[in-house]
């Protein structure tokens, strides 16, 4: 699985929505499913999937799928 696929799968699991709905534009609090609960689960899942420890600033900056890719890139992860 590529990193992009892994990322989409992680979002789909954490937000409990269909993987087809995971687009770059999808933003925190823009849909009912991406609430605080889901956000916390998302952070935990991202850390587990990519075996990283996110900084506080990165956690609170993660406001969209696109933004999450930008942030994860800082942890030497590539999304093509």
């Amino acid at each position: 699985m590529t990193n992009t696929e892994k990322l989409q799968q992680t979002f789909a699991t954490a937000l409990a929505i269909d993987i087809n709905r995971i687009t770059d534009e999808l933003a925190y609090n823009s849909i009912k499913e991406w609430d605080s609960t889901a956000h916390m689960i998302l952070v935990a899942e991202l850390e587990a999937t990519f075996d990283i420890l996110l900084d506080t600033d990165d956690i609170i900056d993660m406001s969209s799928v696109a933004e999450s890719k930008r942030i994860l890139a800082k942890y030497d992860l590539r999304f093509d």
Partner: peptide, 9 residues
């Protein structure tokens, strides 16, 4: 703003 957002802090 939710607790886990930059705007809250």
């Amino acid at each position: 703003e939710p607790l886990m957002s930059k705007n809250f802090w």
